[in-house]
């Protein structure tokens, strides 16, 4: 299940298990530091083993898979864009992922500028002139892709790590 060789993604939400049953005393939440410990040691090892570009690809792709499943599992289907965004904002906030906001949205060209404040991945990291939220890029691409049923390209243009207070993502259709 978890360790089979594979050509295509085999991820399934059930792989996350039954947290209520599994953690009756500790509950469903954890410390953000633990999440970041995982993310940044993983990045460290991926870069060491495969290089920066490959590590970025891994983060983007896994973020995208996560975004698609997140949409499938947690978001109401076939709603209007406004309602979709409102629900997404609510869910991301309540799960402590970040505060999502829209700055620009062109529903005809399907281009968006969105920001995430208090981001789980990067808010509070040392400033280093890099955009670091590659996993978020993929996550947004997966979410919007599942909603609009098409491929999107997402690029983080400002990040806490590059000196901003919010992470800013440019979204456009992948043509």
């Amino acid at each position: 299940m978890f360790k089979e060789e594979r050509e295509d993604t085999q991820f399934d939400w059930t792989m996350l298990g039954d947290v209520t049953q599994g953690r009756p005393h500790l509950g469903p939440t954890t410390d953000v530091a633990v999440y970041r410990l995982m993310q940044f040691t993983l990045r460290d090892t991926l870069i060491k083993e495969f290089g920066v570009a490959a590590a970025d690809r891994v983060f983007y792709q896994s973020g995208k898979t996560a975004g698609m499943h997140f949409y499938d599992k947690l978001i109401t289907k076939e709603s209007e864009f406004q309602a979709f965004i409102a629900e997404l904002q609510e869910v991301l906030k309540s799960m402590g992922v970040g505060i999502l906001r829209i700055e620009k949205a062109d529903l005809e060209k399907l281009t968006f500028t969105m920001t995430v404040a208090e981001d789980l991945d990067c808010s509070g990291l040392p400033v280093c002139d890099e955009e670091i939220c590659t996993y978020d890029e993929g996550f947004i691409a997966g979410l919007l892709g599942a909603y609009a049923k098409r491929e999107f390209l997402v690029k983080e243009v400002d990040c806490w790590c590059s000196g901003d207070r919010v992470c800013r993502f440019d979204v456009k259709p992948a043509t």
């Binding site: 829209i102 700055e103 620009k104 920001t115």
Partner: peptide, 8 residues
């Protein structure tokens, strides 16, 4: 960022 979001 706030003003941009507010504009939207």
């Amino acid at each position: 960022a706030n003003l941009r979001h507010l504009t939207w």
